[in-house]
Amino acid sequence: MPKLLEVRDLRVRFDGEAGPVRVVRGVSFDLERGATLGIVGESGSGKSVTALSVMRLLPKPAGVIESGSVFLEGRDLAALTPAEMSKVRGNRISMIFQEPMTALNPVHTVRRQLAESYELHHPEMNAAQVAEASLQMLKDVGIPDPSKRLDEYPHQLSGGMRQRVMISIALACRPDVLIADEPTTALDVTIQAQILKLIKRLQREHGMAVLFITHDLGVIAEICDEVAVMYAGQVVERATAKELFASPRHPYTSGLLASIPRLDSVRKTLLKTIEGMVPDFSSLPRGCAFSNRCEMAVDACAEPPMLAPAGGERLSRCPRWEDMK
């Protein structure tokens, strides 16, 4: 039986005024039914572009999938016509975004926007069925007073409620895969906890798989089974969440983990840092993209490293992973 979602050697380029920039440079991963894979990285790591490529939602005409495949149950989404793809999008794979205000239509009520997904993907449903299903969706995502909320516009809702509405629309057709791109980054921490809990509960109830994109390792730890760490357009480490946090096997991952201030760290002591900054895509170091910031770099790092087995099921792009404590 084919995997639910398989991304193979995805390469994405943006054509800008200064020439093409390769922002996703050979990303592969797969996602099992019901599992949660987190993709974590800093700005410019290519994590969001990877998600948008899976949905075939790259900004046109600048964003181009140069090569690679995205298989949904063995069917290559990258090869579908736009009409075929729009039958998949919102139906089999849905996406939620950081800022629901940009994803929701400001001139339509919540009811209209929910109905749209049913009309598109389930034309056999009559108006009464659509109304009932919509109400049920709002109840499912924990919106108080759902029958009243159905007739409100996005601007009448708080940030947390908008995020719930967006989730209800994304899940209306019971997708197999939910792609969540920083869905809690703009929310307050107590509201973030509510939304993460909601996503986890809905995932259990609906049995969907979740691809969770975030910059926050704390959020990753709370919600993901497996993690892919991205840097400069590539996956540099892949492991289960437990293994990754217990013993990172790429210097970038361990650097990130050490640089986060924690509640139980000793106050006012200097934090570990990763020196320098994320390199510009136009001037990546030769070989390993992290080598110019890496404390462990050696001459061999001038050769481009492969994402290779690093003990058990784990993968690391660092040839020196065995030297990490």
Binding site: M161, D188, Q192, A193
Partner: peptide, 23 residues
């Protein structure tokens, strides 16, 4: 304090006490 996502995968979000309602 309880809402902070800590980089520790042994605590799942589902077991956390979560503050209900909105500000």
């Amino acid at each position: 304090l309880a809402s902070i996502p800590e980089p520790d995968p042994s605590r799942s979000v589902e077991d956390k006490p979560v503050l209900e309602g909105e500000i």
